[in-house]
Design a protein around this nucleic acid. Sequence first.
DNA 1: TTGTTCTAGTCAGATTCTCTGATTAAAGTA
DNA 2: TACTTTAATCAGAGAATCTGACTAGAACAA
Lengths: 139, 139
Amino acid sequence: MNIGLLLFIPSREVENRVLAAVVEAGFEITQAQARVLMRVGPDGTRLTELAEAAQVTKQTAGFLVDQLEKAGYVERVPDPSDGRARLVRVTAKAEEAVPVANAEMARIEAEWEQHIGRRRMTQLREALEMLGEITDPYR
Amino acid sequence: MNIGLLLFIPSREVENRVLAAVVEAGFEITQAQARVLMRVGPDGTRLTELAEAAQVTKQTAGFLVDQLEKAGYVERVPDPSDGRARLVRVTAKAEEAVPVANAEMARIEAEWEQHIGRRRMTQLREALEMLGEITDPYR
DNA sequence: TTGTTCTAGTCAGATTCTCTGATTAAAGTA
DNA sequence: TACTTTAATCAGAGAATCTGACTAGAACAA
């Protein structure tokens, strides 16, 4: 079984379930928007950085941030260190979704650990963290 | 770091690189088409099954299969056991892309093994195979 | 056998996501 | 100052996806 599909399937499972939980809780947000929102840092992040981290073009990132802004999940503030740039920051409203997402994630991890065992779960996480070092464009 | 993102990042890396290699080799195909094509079984697969495995609606699967058919990567033949159904089968042309994809995949795995070590790579694959049992709708 | 219900697939229409190319304004640099 | 680069946006188009409605064949119950 190919490693790409092996990674893709549980990845999608998490995405789907976490998004479903968040939507269920009353937050209207899409998968694409969530992928960008997830990348916004605690002190705000520039559009260009978001685009790079989420691996989409600036235009796409801008389009998604527009929607997130309209829905009240992020705000754009001027970047004091660069007059051309603006910082995208998450709002209090978006912060409220975090515990919902975390709870569903914890539920999933618990199910997985139930199935594959604690040791393998630890190993999985460790291997993935290391792979992130060479595959995550954000780092 | 959340487990969904940890899975998503390397998953996308594989998808992107394998697709790029296949396109580079002259096969004109998109990510969405590839995801469906990948799920076609050796004896042909029904559209409904493809849709389920790839987790898209029948309409979307049909749309993508149309394109794959036009491009000559799959053909639709009547299902002898059911007059309503047709079997989607991969053509010889599509088979030619397989070694290209496999080669790139092997290259990626080698790089990863270089970075995280052989033992962790084995553990990773084992954990993912097991997770597939509870997350892959195809099985 | 004959309705009734279910299943496989398609048609129509709309929305969402994504891209390429061009433009504007601010920064950095020679 | 003039040139180049960078951050962001505007315009337009294409790709992928969905919901809802429909057709034809299969399955089943009376």
